[in-house]
């Protein structure tokens, strides 16, 4: 019984939240890694693209709510999501047209493009804050739990409860659908294959008659979709605040680098590596150990490797380990 209780506690406080967070990071890192693979720079505006897309979705959600529209037990934000993606895609395409295209034509160095993306970051960050403000927003509605701790306890008869919030379930389901679609697109469609070819060997792709402008356009649209979905899921699960989204840049890049920059499969693995490490390291193991160890050995302290303040440090340490020991990442991205 104690082992079951320990397991449920572990599932409840580690596996469930880390899986949801990992899925959100994976989607964000996929966006960053696609930009890196196709456009060949680290996009510092990735976090703010997520914030921008989420903001549009929130505004749309509020409007739908004011009309009395609802999505039953699902959050209204999911109805608003397509609009958020469309507006963000338009914004990114426009940014590419007026900003990035110029540097691409010049074949500018990646570092220049990173600085340019800083400028874009400022603009998107400013726009988001001007439109919706810098404060925290909660926009989740619909059912709150798939299963509550109390329901689980009565069902299982255990002392410990397992709660799965609706937002966590939605996150995982959505992420699976999106990732499955993305891999189908990249591996099975002509356009998707041409994107991979372009990322692999730009000159040969051009020789083969692949239209770079088309590839870049499709990339931005997909990046807008991934960023908006990742942002909305994160916002539903936690809350929306522009600065928090900016700070997601570090875990997102850590995830992308762990997996190997430019490698989509790696980005997904990296997202979960970072999320699980973060939760495992900042989780207080006292309760789990209390069930597993005999009473006289049970720990008095929290048994927490790092306080939750140091969440960001976990991403950073992972990043450092990867840079030190395997700069191309787990899945051999475009190397250093």
């Amino acid at each position: 019984m104690d082992i079951l209780n320990a397991l449920v506690t572990f599932l409840n406080f580690v596996v469930v939240p880390a899986t949801a967070y990992g899925a959100q990071l994976a989607l964000g890192a996929l966006g960053a890694t696609l930009v890196y693979g196709i456009l060949r720079f680290s996009n510092f505006a990735q976090g703010d693209t997520m914030a921008f897309g989420t903001m549009i979705t929130i505004l749309m959600t509020w409007w739908l709510q004011s009309l009395g529209v609802s999505f039953g037990p699902l959050p209204t934000a999911l109805l608003a999501l397509p609009v958020g993606i469309a507006v963000t895609a338009l914004f990114l395409l426009m940014t590419d047209r007026v900003v990035y295209r110029f540097y691409r034509a010049q074949r500018a160095a990646p570092t220049i493009l990173v600085i340019v993306s800083l400028g874009v970051m400022f603009v998107m960050n400013g726009l988001t804050r001007i439109i919706i403000g810098a404060e925290e927003q909660n926009f989740a509605d619909g059912a709150r739990f798939l299963i509550t701790a109390g329901e689980f306890k009565t069902w299982s008869g255990l002392d410990e409860g397992l709660a799965i919030r609706a937002s966590q379930a939605i996150t995982v389901v959505t992420a699976i659908i999106v990732v499955a679609w993305l891999f189908w697109f990249l591996n099975k469609t002509r356009t998707g294959k041409s994107m991979r070819a372009f990322s692999d060997n730009e000159d040969l792709a051009l020789l083969s008659g692949i239209n770079p402008d088309h590839v870049v356009r499709i990339t931005w649209i997909i990046v807008a979709a991934l960023a908006t979905i990742a942002g909305v899921l994160y916002g539903l699960d936690k809350s929306f605040k522009p600065f928090t989204y900016f700070q997601l840049l570090l875990p997102i890049f850590a995830a992308a680098v762990v997996g190997g920059l430019g490698n989509p499969l790696g980005a997904i693995a990296g997202g979960f590596v970072v999320a699980y490490s973060e939760v495992l390291v900042t989780y207080a193991w006292k309760k789990v150990l209390g069930y597993l160890l005999p009473a006289d050995l049970a720990p008095d302290s929290l048994v927490q490797l790092l306080s939750t303040d140091y969440k960001l440090a976990v991403s950073f340490i992972i990043l450092i380990i990867v840079l030190l020991f395997m700069p191309t990442g787990l899945f051999k991205g475009k190397s250093g």
Binding site: S42, A109, P110, V114, L250, F253, V257, I320, L323, G336
Partner: peptide, 13 residues
Amino acid sequence: GLRSDYLAIATLG
């Protein structure tokens, strides 16, 4: 000594 982007990401961290 690694890709130039890595310094940017690491210093941000």
